[in-house]
């Protein structure tokens, strides 16, 4: 464990909690892409199946349960509890165009052709593009609630911190995982446009609105 990975995990946890509280407190999931949240639930489910097979640490196991629990709670609130506030008309990204090719890629490019490893690879690839429906929805509505931009900021920051963690681990531990690194770079690049808007607008107290 190193400082980048720890702050990365805490940033990820913060994002997940911010979103959960936003929906719970405002009793509304307006502006939130349910499709992205389903993809995140799928990412955690396919990645954390090793909960059944191996124990790494109490931290690792407890965080995995928290991530999975919050992801499904968020999906439940969007599609069941606060269904009336779900903006389906703007959440129209065709996720099958992501899931199917990525499923194929996970079979072709992986570290080991075993079920758990292919599912892990699928989850790494999927996570790198899982935010696209959410970013697409914001570009369609032309704006985002400020709390949603904070959620996106911490979510984007977490993988950027993981990139630094991988540099650290390569240098000090000789560890590198090319699949995770390439997917992590793609994932972080997808947030660059948002990061620019977040820093130049939201941090200056303005509302995040895109030139529609």
């Amino acid at each position: 464990m190193n400082i980048f990975r720890l702050t990365g995990d805490l940033s990820h946890l913060a994002a997940i909690i911010i979103l959960l509280l936003k929906i719970w407190k405002t009793r509304s999931c307006a502006g939130i892409s349910g499709k992205s949240q389903i993809l995140f639930a799928l990412v955690f489910t396919t990645r954390y199946l090793d909960l059944l097979t191996s124990f790494i640490s109490l931290y690792n196991t407890s965080m995995k349960f928290i991530y999975i629990g919050c992801a499904y709670a968020t999906v439940y609130m969007i599609y069941a509890k606060f269904k009336a506030t779900y903006d389906g008309n703007h959440d129209t990204f065709r996720v099958e165009f992501l899931v199917v090719p990525i499923g194929g890629l996970a079979f072709l490019v992986n570290h080991d052709f075993s079920p758990l490893e292919i599912l892990w690879t699928f989850s790494i690839y999927l996570e790198s593009v899982a935010i696209l429906p959410q970013l697409f929805m914001i570009s369609k509505t032309g704006e985002a609630e400020t709390i949603t931009t904070h959620y996106l900021f911490f979510l984007g920051l977490y993988r950027a911190l993981y990139l630094m963690n991988w540099i650290w681990r390569f240098y000090f531990e000789g560890f590198f995982d090319m699949i995770a690194i390439v997917a992590g770079v793609v994932q972080t690049i997808l947030y660059c446009d948002f990061f620019y808007l977040y820093v130049t607008k939201v941090l200056k107290g303005k509302k995040l609105s895109l030139p529609a």
């Binding site: 990820h12 990645r47 790494i56 490893e117 560890f175």
Partner: peptide, 10 residues
């Protein structure tokens, strides 16, 4: 530099 496939990260 060895590649490790035991995934110890979240």
């Amino acid at each position: 530099r060895q590649l490790i496939t035991s995934h110890d990260e979240l």
